[in-house]
Design a protein around this nucleic acid. Structure first.
Lengths: 137, 137
DNA sequence: ATATTAAATTGTAATCATTACAAACTAAAA
DNA sequence: TTTTAGTTTGTAATGATTACAATTTAATAT
C-alpha cells in the first residue's frame, strides 16, 4: 500500500467513514481528476479496475461522502448531478461551447436585507463562453 | 379582457412569442406567485381552469420562455427543475427546515484570476435555515 | 367566407438518472 | 468458529423529462 493510499484511508477514517477498496478508489478519482464528474464518469473510469463495481455503490458512496462533508454536490446541469471533492468556498463556470467546467475563485458576495439565517452550503455557478472558446470566432 | 391580460399579451408578443391562453396563464402564474414553481405546481394550479392542459404543454412553454429569456431555470433542487420569471440578478436561499425558497439580493461577486470569459447566466444558491425557522428551537 | 398551411396542444410511450430493496459477500466482534 | 454488522451488488421501481404523432387551433391566401 503506497503512501497516497495510506493517507486517503486515514483521511476517510478520520471522517467517520469505514474504508473499503471501492470507497478509496472513488475518493481517489475525485482527488486526482478534479473534473466534477458524474456517476457515470466515475463508473467508466473504475470498472476496469473493479469489474464487479455497481453504480449503486457509487451512488451510495457519494451520498455517504456528502453526508460526511467530504464531497459537495454540483447542480450546474439540469439532468445529471456532479460531485466535487474540493469543499473550500469556490464557484463554477460552465462553458456552453466546450462544456468544460472550471473552478473559479471569488469573494463571498454581500447579501443585502436578509438577516438571521444560517448557511450550510453555498452554490455559485456561471454559464457562458470560456476564454479559449472566445478566441475561436 | 382585463388590463393585466392585455399587458401580458403584448409583453409576450414583444418577446417574439405568439400568445395562447395556455402560455398567458402559465406566465401569469409565474408573475403572480413568484414561488419558483416546479412543472407539477403549475400544472396543479391551472388544471381546474384549463381541464385539457397537458404537462407537455407546460414543459414546451417553459422551454420557449427560457429560450426567449423571459424565464430563468433554477437548479437548486437535485431532482426537479424550478422556474423564475424574475430575470434580474438575484440569488436564492433554500431553508432546509421549511423548504421555502427565498429571493435574496446580493452584490455581483468579484471573480479572481479568471479572464476573457463572457457570461450568459448567473446562478447563486444558498442552503441553510431561515430566520423564521431559527426562532423555533 | 373557405381552403390551405403553419403552429400549438395534447396523450402516450420512451428515456434515463436515481432510489428502493433484497440477496450475496466481507469484515469485525464475540 | 460463530455471530453480527456493514458493504456491495443486481434488479426492479420511481419519477422527471423528452420524443413523437395525432388532434386542435390559429394564420394566411384564394
Amino acid at each position: 500500500m503506497d503512501i497516497e493510499t495510506t493517507k486517503i484511508n486515514s483521511y476517510l477514517k478520520s471522517h467517520d467513514i469505514k474504508v473499503s477498496y471501492q470507497r478509496a478508489q472513488i475518493y481517489k478519482y475525485l482527488l486526482k481528476y478534479k473534473n466534477h464528474p458524474t456517476v457515470d464518469m466515475i463508473y467508466k473510469a473504475l470498472i476496469n479496475d473493479i469489474p464487479s463495481l455497481s453504480k449503486t455503490t457509487i451512488y451510495n458512496t457519494l451520498k455517504l461522502f456528502v453526508d460526511k462533508k467530504l464531497v459537495n454536490v454540483i447542480n450546474i446541469e439540469d439532468n445529471e448531478t456532479r460531485y466535487d471533492a474540493d469543499t473550500t468556498f469556490h464557484g463554477h463556470f460552465k462553458c456552453k461551447k466546450c462544456n468544460k467546467i472550471y473552478d473559479i475563485r471569488l469573494e463571498k458576495p454581500m447579501i443585502i436585507d436578509f438577516e438571521n439565517y444560517s448557511v450550510d452550503e453555498y452554490h455559485f455557478y456561471i454559464k457562458g463562453v470560456c476564454s479559449e472558446c472566445n478566441k475561436i470566432k
